[in-house]
Design a protein around this nucleic acid. Sequence first.
DNA 1: GCAAAACGTTACTTTTTTGTCAAGATTGAC
DNA 2: GTCAATCTTGACAAAAAAGTAACGTTTTGC
Lengths: 159, 159
Amino acid sequence: MKISAQEEYGLRCLVQLADLPEGESLTLPQIAEREGISTANAGKLMWLLNRAGFVHSTRGTKGGYLLARPASEIRLSEIIRVLDDDEMAKHCDNYTGVLDSCVHKGDCGIRPVIIGLHEIVADALSNITLSHLVGSESSVDATFHKIQGIHRTLESQRA
Amino acid sequence: MKISAQEEYGLRCLVQLADLPEGESLTLPQIAEREGISTANAGKLMWLLNRAGFVHSTRGTKGGYLLARPASEIRLSEIIRVLDDDEMAKHCDNYTGVLDSCVHKGDCGIRPVIIGLHEIVADALSNITLSHLVGSESSVDATFHKIQGIHRTLESQRA
DNA sequence: GCAAAACGTTACTTTTTTGTCAAGATTGAC
DNA sequence: GTCAATCTTGACAAAAAAGTAACGTTTTGC
């Protein structure tokens, strides 16, 4: 269970934009340099993020990228879903071995665990927004654990 | 964020062994057939699982594989850690772009989220054992949610 | 002993994922 | 209007993951 390169770098590019003063934008070369990736690679990532509606781009001299919505309104769960190509929906169609369909098509003891796991992850990520990620490592860490704590308490009250 | 083929199929092979009557074992061709994968592939997976100490193998005619420990004592968190090649420990060494080390080496707002996410997943998986996975899909689903519910309640009480 | 059935190990091939390149399109400045 | 800076897009190349093949070792049964 891991984060793909696309998820990691895509998220980082968005954080760079979220960390900008109101109204400012970044060009591809600037984003690439700040994240230590090639301009070509940054270009592809930003294309994905633009297509998904997370950023707005302007062409020509003085062009660049900026967030399409306030950072506080963009949840990590949305971002990951896009960068991950909605992998979860296809899980059971992918792992079919040498056959056309999974041998556990009818009844599968693993499926509920996989689905449940993704629910837990999506749930945790839906409570974190881009604006939560712009601070220092220690402050983000504190925020994350606070959010998780609150969330779990609400969960168990509901149950 | 997704499960790799190695994790998925490796876990499934273990579930097959967990579903066996006490003392019985399965050969590679049997495991392969039951999971719809090639014998060669099953062989590689079982080699990994044997090396990690989850199963015992016996060679020669009448040989085969069986669990090294009771299914109720093997937690999914251990299994995933092995099949995933302990990916988490290397996260920050992997995503360095074109550079030798990650540009966020010093202070990184994303790291606590990645680490926290893996903690949440490992936490959820540590409460599920192989024996939980042998029933029907609906019973496993019920068990999973029950375990998660109990766990979250304890978590929030502690907090 | 020897052949058949089974696991063990390493090297190789294929497929998927990542990352790069190059040509095109759009805009602003002069 | 031309030029330079910038994003867009599809094709291509490199790297990683997944899967296969080949050959070896061990055990059982005859």
